[in-house]
């Protein structure tokens, strides 16, 4: 079996540029195809990656880093938001630890797996019900400004918040 290095798309490169500009110290993630380019570029530029076993674990890991003053980011697929809700609602939000999340969306435009539809449809409402604002990124033109804005909300205002990577961006998810 061989693995290939993913091509870094423009929007992925711009997300990475903003993460580096914000001095992100570590990325905790659960794997997803659309995130591959971001993770590869981050690692290539010296940001430690932590591939953890479950999404709520990523949130708690990031909480530990944030309480120590470091700038962690969490990356996950939208299906994992369901797994992460307890840690988000009882740790990240009430402790105001300001954890930015980059969420690769499933269950929305063009989804062919019926099992992904309910949580994809509910991702933004579920986050919103916990007071977590999320912002849909559909165009590479908005990647830099939206990522920067969410990182500012997290690291400066202490608001856990999310960029939602929508299918219109492309990025290795289309045929899976």
């Amino acid at each position: 079996m061989t693995t290939s290095t993913p091509t870094i798309l423009q929007w992925q490169a711009e997300v990475v540029d903003q993460l580096l500009a914000a001095d992100v110290s570590v990325a905790a993630f659960v794997p997803d195809s659309r995130l591959n380019g971001v993770l590869t570029a981050l690692s290539g530029r010296g940001v430690p990656l932590r591939s953890l076993t479950r999404e709520e674990e990523c949130v708690a890991y990031a909480a530990g880093a944030r309480i120590a003053g470091k700038r962690a980011v969490v990356m996950l697929q939208s299906s994992g938001i369901g797994n992460a809700l307890n840690a988000l609602g009882t740790l990240a939000v009430p402790y105001r630890l300001g954890i930015p999340m980059i969420v690769s969306m499933r269950g929305t435009l063009g989804e062919t797996n019926p099992s992904q539809i309910p949580i994809g449809r509910a991702t933004s409402p579920m986050l919103g019900s916990l007071g977590i604002q999320s912002f849909s990124l559909r165009s590479a033109d908005d990647a830099a400004s939206m990522t920067e804005a969410v990182l500012n909300m997290a690291y400066q205002a202490g608001e856990t918040s999310a960029v939602l990577l929508e299918p219109e961006l492309g990025g290795q998810r289309e045929r899976r």
């Binding site: 708690a60 890991y61 530990g64 880093a65 944030r66 962690a72 307890n86 740790l91």
Partner: peptide
Amino acid sequence: AAMGSALAGALGLAEA
């Protein structure tokens, strides 16, 4: 709260 998450929190803190 966050039952089941304290070990992961400790891991993140220890590394940071």
